[in-house]
Amino acid sequence: MTAVTANDVSLSWYEASARQRIDALVDAGSFSEFIGPELREISPHLSIFDLPEQFDDGIVIGRGRLDGAPVLVAAQEGRFMGGAFGEVHGAKLTGLLRAARALKQDLVILFDTGGVRLQEANAGELAIAEIMRAVIEARREGVNVVGLIGGRAGCYGGGSLIAGTCSKLIISEQGRLSVSGPEVIETNKGIEEFDSRDRALVWRTMGGKHRYLIGGADTFVDDEALAFREAAITALKVGTRCDVTVLEAEQARLERRLQRFGEAEDAVEIWQALGIDDPTDVPALPTGAFLRAATNRENADDAR
């Protein structure tokens, strides 16, 4: 066996493609793909709408090694249809999760998605449900399912629901995690409720820093592939449980959080309540200073 080596080239996670992210995440040269593009397992629905197809349907799945340990990997390509879940895209992830359960091998999901692909909505919604069930079933068998969020499309809609079932979430400042996206909220509730063009508002409401501060994510990293790799290695070393005690603890934590912050009008008020000295400065803080300021953050340790 050769020594474990990481790909040490600096790479922005946000800018990278799904395949580049996998190459940078796992040990050098260790990845082998399942159902690769040469099999042309494409969406059966897009041609009906005369839309272009992609040979891997926007998700790359396979196995590799992470610091020497075997791991299953799924990476969404956020630039193809916003990384959205369709029938084939979803089935590939469901199958991989079932393999993780059967093989008792940990799995990492590189989220980059706007949610369900509207052109194959029913198949996509079903896929989300199947994936969430498969995540829980794998976790019940002691398998870690770690989510990495830092792509262009963020992690929205059904993708955010799946993220909610993961054993650990790693997020960068650029990563956004929310059920409804900015445009969806504005369309349904009006611009007074949420101005989707106000980028600062979007980032401080859905961005990685806020999610980390309120315990929606477990680890905060720089927008750098190596940082995601190191965080994933650490996250997989922490064994996790998934049983009634854990879920009850999470329910209690969420009730506490709602009581504490439910009246807040803006993320800045929450940061202030968390005891951060200069809450308005949070978006500008570099990673080191941000992590120091975040010592009293909400955390999800009970639940995950």
Binding site: R19, Q54, F55, E77
Partner: peptide
């Protein structure tokens, strides 16, 4: 045996 570049966008 094969190579893949680019993305459909």
């Amino acid at each position: 045996a094969q190579a893949m570049v680019g993305v459909v966008a």
